[in-house]
Amino acid sequence: TLFEALYDYEARTEDDLSFHKGEKFQILNSSEGDWWEVRSLTTGETGYIPSPYLA
């Protein structure tokens, strides 16, 4: 399933992933509550992002 970022986000820890509004992601793991592990389709990087920032 693909999701798109609604807002920009700046990583706060080394496990987080910074991203920009409009960036698209593949969800790798959504079992961690509000923090999902994703792969950016723009950069190929993986990390955790806050799920409320996605649509």
Rank of each mutant, 00 (worst) to 15 (best):
S51D: 03
L17E: 01
L28T: 03
I27H: 01
L17R: 15
A11G: 10
I49Q: 00
T43S: 08
Q26P: 00
W35E: 03
A55P: 07
Y7Q: 13
L28M: 05
Y53C: 13
E23D: 14
T42I: 08
T1L: 13
L28A: 01
T1F: 12
G44P: 00
P50H: 12
Y53W: 09
T43F: 13
T1W: 14
F25C: 01
S51V: 08
P50I: 04
Y53I: 07
T13Q: 14
S40Q: 05
Y48G: 00
W36M: 12
S30R: 12
Y48V: 06
Y53A: 12
E32F: 15
V38M: 02
S30T: 12
T43P: 00
D34S: 09
S31T: 11
Y53Q: 06
Y9L: 12
Y9E: 00
E37M: 14
E37H: 14
T1I: 11
F19Y: 07
W36K: 00
A55G: 10
E14D: 11
D34Q: 09
H20L: 10
S18I: 08
G33W: 10
D34I: 11
S18V: 06
A5C: 07
L41N: 04
L17Y: 04
P50N: 08
L41D: 10
T1P: 11
G33H: 10
S31V: 09
E32G: 13
D34G: 14
W35I: 08
D15Q: 12
S31M: 10
V38D: 01
R39I: 07
E23S: 03
G47N: 01
P52L: 14
S31A: 10
E23L: 02
N29G: 09
T42R: 14
T43N: 04
S40A: 07
R12T: 12
K21M: 07
A5R: 01
F25S: 00
L28K: 13
G47F: 09
Y53D: 05
P50Q: 08
G44M: 05
E10D: 14
T43C: 05
E23M: 05
S51G: 09
P52V: 15
W36P: 00
L17P: 02
D16Y: 13
L41R: 00
A55M: 12
S40G: 03
Y48H: 06
G33K: 09
S51F: 11
T46W: 06
D8A: 05
D16L: 12
W36N: 00
G33T: 10
F3M: 07
N29V: 06
S31E: 09
D8R: 15
D15H: 14
A11L: 12
A5M: 05
D34V: 09
W36L: 05
V38N: 00
K21V: 07
I27V: 12
T1V: 14
L6K: 11
A11C: 07
V38H: 00
D15C: 15
E10Q: 13
E4D: 04
R39Q: 06
G33Q: 09
L2C: 11
Y48L: 11
P52W: 15
K24A: 05
P52N: 15
F25P: 15
N29P: 01
K24P: 03
E32A: 12
F25R: 11
F19E: 07
E23F: 04
S18H: 07
R39P: 00
L6Y: 07
G47P: 00
A11Q: 08
I49S: 00
F3D: 14
E45K: 14
T46A: 04
S18C: 06
L54T: 06
E4L: 10
L54Y: 07
S51H: 06
G33P: 12
G47W: 13
T42M: 09
A55V: 12
S31G: 10
F19K: 01
T13N: 12
E45N: 10
S18T: 10
G44L: 12
T13F: 15
F25M: 02
G44S: 14
I49M: 15
F3I: 04
G44C: 08
Y48N: 07
S40N: 14
H20D: 03
P50W: 15
Y7K: 05
G22V: 02
R39Y: 07
F3W: 15
W35G: 01
Q26S: 05
T42N: 06
W36D: 00
L6M: 10
W35F: 07
L17N: 00
E10M: 10
R39L: 10
N29R: 06
E10W: 10
S18R: 02
T46D: 07
L17A: 02
Y9W: 07
L17I: 11
I27Q: 01
Y7I: 07
P52C: 15
R12S: 09
Y48R: 13
N29S: 13
G33E: 11
E4T: 15
S31C: 11
P50K: 09
N29C: 10
E45F: 09
H20E: 05
D15R: 15
Q26F: 14
S30F: 11
A5P: 02
I27L: 11
V38L: 01
T46E: 06
G47Y: 07
F3G: 05
Y53E: 04
T42C: 08
F25E: 00
Y9K: 07
S40I: 13
D8C: 11
L54R: 06
S30K: 11
E4I: 15
A5S: 04
T43H: 02
S30G: 11
Y53S: 08
D34L: 13
N29L: 04
V38Q: 00
W35K: 08
L28P: 01
N29F: 05
S40W: 04
G44F: 04
Q26T: 08
G47T: 12
K21D: 02
S51N: 14
Q26D: 14
T13C: 15
D15I: 13
Y48E: 07
T1D: 11
R12W: 13
S18L: 04
H20I: 10
H20C: 12
G22T: 02
G44N: 06
D8F: 04
D34C: 14
A5Q: 01
F3N: 09
D8L: 05
L2V: 13
E23N: 15
D16I: 12
L54N: 08
S30V: 10
F19I: 06
I27P: 01
E14P: 12
L41F: 06
S30H: 08
F19R: 01
S31W: 09
Y7N: 05
H20A: 10
S40F: 03
D34Y: 15
F19D: 09
E14F: 11
T42Y: 08
T46F: 06
V38G: 02
K21Y: 05
T1E: 12
D34P: 07
T13G: 14
F25N: 00
F3L: 06
K21W: 04
L28Q: 01
W36V: 05
Y7V: 07
D34A: 09
D15M: 13
T42W: 15
T1Y: 11
E4F: 12
R12P: 10
E14R: 10
S51T: 06
E32Q: 13
F25H: 00
L17V: 14
S30W: 11
Y48C: 09
H20R: 14
E10H: 09
W35Q: 09
S30A: 13
Y7P: 00
Q26A: 08
E32D: 13
S51M: 05
K21E: 03
S31D: 10
L54P: 05
W35H: 04
P52F: 15
D34E: 10
G44V: 02
R39V: 07
Y53P: 03
E37L: 15
G47L: 06
T1Q: 12
P52G: 15
L41T: 06
E4A: 08
T13E: 07
L2T: 09
P50Y: 15
A5H: 04
D8I: 04
R39K: 08
L41Q: 04
L41I: 08
S40V: 05
G33A: 12
E4R: 04
S51A: 14
F3C: 09
P50M: 12
W36G: 00
E37Q: 13
A5W: 05
G22A: 02
Y7H: 06
S18E: 03
E23T: 06
A55H: 11
